Amino acid sequence: ELREAFRLYDKEGNGYISTDVMREILAELDETLSSEDLDAMIDEIDADGSGTVDFEEFMGVMT
């Protein structure tokens, strides 16, 4: 189920989504998050600083 959700956002099928897209997902899930909260969450999610979120990083957030 998580893989299907990931595929919805990984429109190009390249195995990752951008941190911008991940930020939008988080904002949709919790509309009360401030910009600073979102920045901090993205920094934590994208631990390797690649600017992308792969499936493993995505799973870590969603579980």
Score class of each variant (00 low, 15 high):
Met59Tyr: 13
Ala47Asn: 08
Leu2Gly: 03
Phe58Arg: 00
Ile45Met: 12
Leu26His: 00
Val21Glu: 08
Ile17Trp: 01
Glu36Phe: 11
Tyr9Pro: 02
Thr32Tyr: 08
Ser50Val: 06
Ala5Val: 15
Ala47Tyr: 09
Leu26Phe: 05
Asp46Gln: 03
Leu29Phe: 12
Asn14Pro: 01
Met41Phe: 08
Met22His: 00
Leu2Phe: 11
Arg23Ser: 01
Glu57Gln: 15
Glu36Asn: 09
Gly60Gln: 15
Asp39Val: 05
Thr19Lys: 09
Lys11His: 10
Thr32Ala: 08
Ser35Tyr: 08
Ala47Ile: 11
Leu26Glu: 00
Gly51Thr: 03
Met62Val: 07
Glu28Asp: 10
Phe58Gly: 01
Asp39Met: 07
Arg7Val: 09
Ile45Thr: 04
Met41Arg: 08
Glu12His: 07
Asn14Cys: 07
Leu29Val: 07
Val21Ile: 13
Glu28Ile: 11
Leu8Glu: 08
Gly13Val: 04
Val53Asn: 00
Met59Arg: 12
Ser34Gly: 06
Leu8Pro: 04
Ser50Ile: 05
Leu29Asn: 07
Lys11Tyr: 09
Asp54Ala: 10
Leu2Lys: 02
Asp54Gln: 09
Asp54Glu: 07
Asp39Thr: 06
Asp37Lys: 09
Asp46Cys: 04
Lys11Leu: 13
Leu8Trp: 11
Ala27Val: 09
Val61Trp: 15
Arg7Asp: 11
Thr63Cys: 13
Met59Asp: 02
Ser35Ile: 10
Gly60Ala: 15
Phe55Trp: 10
Thr19Gln: 03
Asp39Leu: 06
Asp54Arg: 10
Asp54Gly: 13
Val61Phe: 15
Val61Cys: 11
Ala5Ile: 15
Asn14Ala: 08
Glu44Cys: 13
Arg23Asn: 00
Phe6Pro: 02
Val21Trp: 05
Ile42Ala: 01
Ala27Thr: 09
Arg7Thr: 10
Arg3Gly: 08
Arg3Trp: 15
Phe58Thr: 01
Met59Val: 14
Glu12Tyr: 06
Leu26Arg: 00
Met41His: 03
Thr32Asn: 11
Glu31Asn: 14
Glu56Phe: 12
Thr19Pro: 04
Arg3Ile: 12
Ile42Arg: 01
Thr19Arg: 11
Ala47Arg: 13
Glu1Met: 13
Glu28Thr: 13
Ser35Asp: 12
Leu8Tyr: 12
Asp37Ala: 11
Gly13Phe: 04
Ile25Pro: 00
Ala40Glu: 08
Phe55Tyr: 11
Ala27Asn: 06
Leu26Met: 06
Met41Asn: 00
Met62Gly: 03
Thr63Arg: 12
Gly49Val: 04
Thr52Trp: 07
Thr52Met: 09
Tyr9Thr: 02
Ile45Lys: 01
Val53Ser: 01
Gly60Phe: 15
Ser18Thr: 12
Ala40Lys: 13
Phe58His: 00
Asp30Cys: 12
Asp30Pro: 02
Asp20Ser: 14
Leu8Thr: 12
Glu1Lys: 14
Met22Asp: 00
Phe6Asp: 02
Ser18Met: 06
Val61Ala: 14
Gly13Lys: 06
Gly49Gln: 10
Glu56Gly: 09
Glu12Lys: 07
Tyr9Phe: 09
Glu44Pro: 03
Tyr9Asp: 02
Glu57Trp: 08
Phe6Gln: 02
Glu57His: 14
Ser18Asp: 05
Leu29Ser: 06
Tyr9Gly: 02
Tyr9Met: 07
Met22Pro: 00
Asp43Thr: 12
Glu36Trp: 11
Phe58Ser: 00
Glu44Ile: 13
Ala27Asp: 02
Ile42Asp: 00
Asp30Glu: 05
Met59Ala: 13
Phe6Lys: 02
Thr52His: 09
Gly15Gln: 02
Ala5Glu: 06
Glu24Asp: 10
Leu26Lys: 00
Met22Val: 07
Ala40Ile: 11
Gly60Val: 14
Val21Gly: 05
Leu33Trp: 11
Arg7Leu: 12
Arg3Leu: 14
Leu38Glu: 01
Ala40Cys: 11
Leu33Thr: 03
Val53Gly: 01
Ala47Met: 09
Val21Asp: 11
Thr19Val: 12
Glu44Tyr: 12
Ala5Pro: 02
Tyr16Ala: 04
Phe55Lys: 01
Ser34Asp: 06
Ser18His: 09
Glu57Val: 14
Glu24Ile: 14
Ala5Met: 15
Phe6Leu: 03
Asp46Leu: 03
Ile42Val: 07
Val53Lys: 00
Asp54Met: 10
Asp46Ser: 04
Met41Gly: 01
Ser50Tyr: 05
Ile17Thr: 00
Ala40Trp: 08
Asp43Asn: 14
Val21Thr: 12
Lys11Gln: 10
Tyr9Arg: 07
Ile17Cys: 02
Asp10Pro: 00
Arg3Tyr: 15
Leu29Trp: 14
Leu38Cys: 02
Leu38Met: 06
Leu26Ser: 00
Leu2Glu: 04
Ala47Phe: 09
Thr63Trp: 07
Ser50Pro: 02
Thr52Lys: 09
Ala5Phe: 15
Phe55Asp: 00
Glu24Cys: 15
Asp10Val: 04
Leu2Thr: 03
Leu33Cys: 05
Gly13Ala: 05
Gly60Thr: 15
Ala27Gln: 12
Glu36Val: 09
Leu26Gln: 00
Tyr16Ile: 04
Ser34Ile: 04
Asp54Asn: 14
Gly15Ile: 03
Asp39Gln: 09
Ala27Leu: 13
Asp39Trp: 06
Ser35Val: 10
Glu4Val: 07
Glu1Ser: 14
Ile42Cys: 02
Ser50Gly: 05
Met22Lys: 00
Leu38Ser: 01
Glu1His: 13
Glu44Gln: 13
Leu2Val: 05
